[in-house]
Amino acid sequence: MIEFKNVSKTFRSGQKKVEAVKNVSLSIDQGDIFGIIGFSGAGKSTLLRLVNMLERPDSGAVHIQGIDIQKLSAKELRKRRQRIGMIFQNFNLFNARTVAGNVGYPLKLAGIPKKEREKKVTELLQFVGLADKAKDFPDQLSGGQKQRVGIARALATSPDILICDEATSALDPDTTADILKLLKQVNQDFGVTILLITHEMHVIQSICNKVAVMEAGEVIETGNVFNTFTNPQHVTTQKFIRSVQQDLPSKSILEKWKANGGKKLYRIIFQGDITNQPILSTTTRKHHVDFNIVYGSVRELQERLFGNLLISFTGDDSHIKQVLKELKTIVKIEEVDDYESGLV
């Protein structure tokens, strides 16, 4: 659907050069809700704006449905843009137009006759739950309502792609959840492919099926959300994941644990069906080892279960080794070292 092929974009202002996007290759499939996450300045917005050529790449290409959109003429590009909806962190509504006027604007651009336009606007406002606000002006709306108008406006011309630049970053947690639900609905009801960027991992966790992590202009990790969450490769990815699910107790608790002669801690990660089986107790019983769960959780992610437990074992050293060896064949298990726990 959308393909970034070795795209780079550098901004030059005077002597300064900022490589906002560095040699990024990504491919977003039809029907995806693809999330790009990264800290501020990572180059997310720039990458997103390459999709509708609000920014032009210095090298590389962006293909949409197989077409290199950089090669389109100005007029063709405008036509193509009508089928790429975009929503923004600050909503960017036309203040001089009513809610209905805002939603109707892209339809006017597309040359849709008045009657049809009005019908479509009514439908869209119903879809986003703002039918009663049609005649209001944007400054009479709350942030969440403004974003609903933004979404309705972006969907007006029945786009096949929706790109979202931090669509929920200006909203409170409850409103964020509502807007995310709405985006999911857009994806499911209309089959719109969504590319969103965010700096909040919970946004990715709640609606995305795929994720890419960006740092300093580069994509450092990408994959489906379940795998990335359960097996993050890059330190930055791990950091983001910890922001939504703490997989370690706090440093002070770990220090206390160590000071009181606590044993080595092991992290066990369960995924999917394995969470239904009593692996731990069968293995430890077999080798006469006791285990103690120090910390952990089992949660749902992408409709699959995912467990993360910190465990210490008591028993004969050689037996513990046996237990570890056996567990390793079934689940992911690793020693929690001092570096990871922040004790060094």
């Binding site: 509708n52 975009m86 923004f88 960017n92 509504l93 604007y105 892209p106 597309a110």
Partner: peptide, 13 residues
């Protein structure tokens, strides 16, 4: 707000 102009551009104006 330049964002408003950008929104119109993104809509193909």
């Amino acid at each position: 707000d330049p964002g408003v102009i950008e929104a119109a551009q993104a809509m193909g104006a």
